[in-house]
Design a binder for these strands. Sequence first.
DNA 1: GCCGGGATCGAC
DNA 2: TCGATCCCGGCA
Length: 202
Amino acid sequence: MKTMTWSKEEFQDAAIHIAPKLLGQYLIHCTKTAEYIGKIVETEAYGGFYKGAADDGSHAFRGRTLRNAPMFEAGGISYVYLIYGMYHCFNVVTSAKDDAQAVLIRAVEPVGGIEAMLHNRRREKMNPAVTNGPGKLCAAMEISRQENGLPLWGDSLYIAGSPYGERFSIGTGPRIHIEYAEKGKFFPWRFFIKGNPFVSKG
DNA sequence: GCCGGGATCGAC
DNA sequence: TCGATCCCGGCA
């Protein structure tokens, strides 16, 4: 049975709607080394408004810059940036052009390309620390700024639905590590699969 | 130019 | 709890 891959149209929606929908879906990255498959277990929405307040936790809050430019494109492309000089974070850009919104993928459960993921993370055995954080999953799945601004409806980096009708309950809460955002730090825009061991500690 | 800081991680 | 490490963005 073939999985359904997300089309460009499906990304033209608010990040707050897409963030929970991405849970249980597969993030797939095909490289020369491996075909990486991770089940998305934790996401965060960025951009837009919550009860009339703009999201001051979003990179796009102060307008367009060189770094956040992909967020201002039409939904369905990647937004990958370097953080703390060492790590990368992968986002799915959503909504219409010039409506800067994105979903940060915070954690995945390894499903395919596991040997390569372990190698990339310099681990001997699988455990949650291999992919239970945004920087960790990028390192594991070979996602860096080379993957910035790429279409997600192509065939090298894309989202696919689960062929199984998997049931799970969704937890929500405030987003991680944006204490500087006076309004946004209270938005309940973090989503995760309850009980999944690969959800980040936060 | 210079300087402050970050949607993190892992060692101590 | 704290340091690593570097690009960006704001300001001069």
